[in-house]
């Protein structure tokens, strides 16, 4: 196990390095100047400011300098406002991760419950309800949901804060908006798998042995049904990151989404690099966790012996 994790870890570092290199050269090749107010600057001033950020040097020197800083944990300063990239990221980090994690967990839990119930009570109202929820989740874009939730629940009904950040209540609506697609996917997968698993021979055997219904469902059925659900969790986690960009702006959540999109369009090199690294680490870790979970749930996948 430890060896496997070590190996995975070193692969993650290599992946990250490639991402950093690719993004660095890509973003520097984009057209346009990174200076915010170049319109009002004389050419000498522009050159001077570029020099302050070391942008006047040849690209490969800049690249090695950046890597050097990175090794020491220095992500540089944002060109747009001269503040430290690490500080900017840390500001948005907790809010983004909180609504993301809460949305994901909420989605998984509700999705699991709905999926299992739907499979156990096939063709009842519970099944229809689960199917209905999953249909809404797959077919209504999360930004439409987010805007509708914010306006109707937040403004018209006034049950929860329409947006902004501050108390726990503020996190509920954004998390719900993010959780919908997760609920949809998970409940669909779990239901399909459960239906299949329930018809397997070993289920009949278990029943014949007199094991309680609950124990059968949890121990045998759910566990097997979880395997495919875990596979989709990686993409789902990545999807939540994308979804959070819009959800954050609709709910005025002080997260990273806006920082990210802004930094690319305004060519704030250091900021783009910083947020890319941040998101990449998140995605890579999510994939890694999913892999580990996979091994835990399905003993057939022997992590310790896994080889390429």
């Amino acid at each position: 196990m430890a060896r496997y994790i070590l190996k995975r870890f070193s692969l993650m570092i290599v992946t990250l390095f490639i991402i950093i290199t690719a993004t660095f050269f890509l973003i520097h090749s984009l057209p346009g100047s990174p200076l915010q107010n170049a319109e009002k600057l004389t050419p000498e001033l522009q050159a001077q400011i570029l020099a302050q950020y070391g942008l006047d040097q040849p690209i490969h020197i800049q690249y090695f300098k950046y890597l050097g800083g990175l090794v020491q944990g220095d992500l540089g300063t944002s060109i747009a406002n001269g503040q430290s990239v690490t500080g900017l990221l840390m500001n948005g980090f907790s809010a983004s991760v909180f609504i993301g994690a809460q949305g994901l967990i909420l989605g998984i839990v509700i999705g699991l419950i709905l999926g299992v119930l739907a499979a156990l009570k096939r063709n009842t109202w519970i099944d229809s309800f689960a199917t209905g929820t999953s249909i809404i989740g797959v077919s209504v874009p999360s930004f439409v949901l987010a805007a509708t939730l914010s306006y109707f629940i937040g403004v018209e009904l006034g049950w929860l804060p329409a947006n902004l950040w501050g108390t726990y209540e503020h996190t509920i609506l954004p998390s719900i908006a993010l959780s919908f697609p997760v609920v949809a996917q998970i409940s669909r997968y779990v239901r399909t798998e459960m239906v299949e698993v329930l018809e397997q021979d070993y289920m009949r055997t278990a029943k014949a042995k007199g094991i309680s219904r609950l124990a059968i469902t949890v121990k045998h059925a759910l566990r097997n049904a979880l395997i495919p659900a875990v596979t989709v969790m990686g993409p789902l986690a990545a999807g939540i990151i994308t979804g959070s960009l819009v959800v954050e702006s609709i709910f005025a959540v002080p997260g990273m989404g806006k920082i990210f999109v802004d930094s690319i369009t305004s060519k704030d090199y250091t900021m783009v690099m910083g947020s890319t690294i941040f998101y990449s680490v998140l995605i890579i870790s999510a994939l890694f966790i999913v892999d580990l979970l996979y091994g835990i749930i399905d003993p057939r996948i022997r992590i310790s012996g896994a080889k390429e």
Binding site: I19, A22, L30, P31, I241, F260, I264, Y279, I283
Partner: peptide
């Protein structure tokens, strides 16, 4: 296979928005 799989892993780990936004700026 191994080479391609590593490559895919990299692609998959870059937030796809950054690739898309950059492409759309080009």
């Amino acid at each position: 296979d191994m080479f391609i799989q590593r490559f895919i892993e990299v692609i998959y780990s870059i937030p796809n928005l950054i690739i898309i936004i950059m492409l759309l700026m080009w």
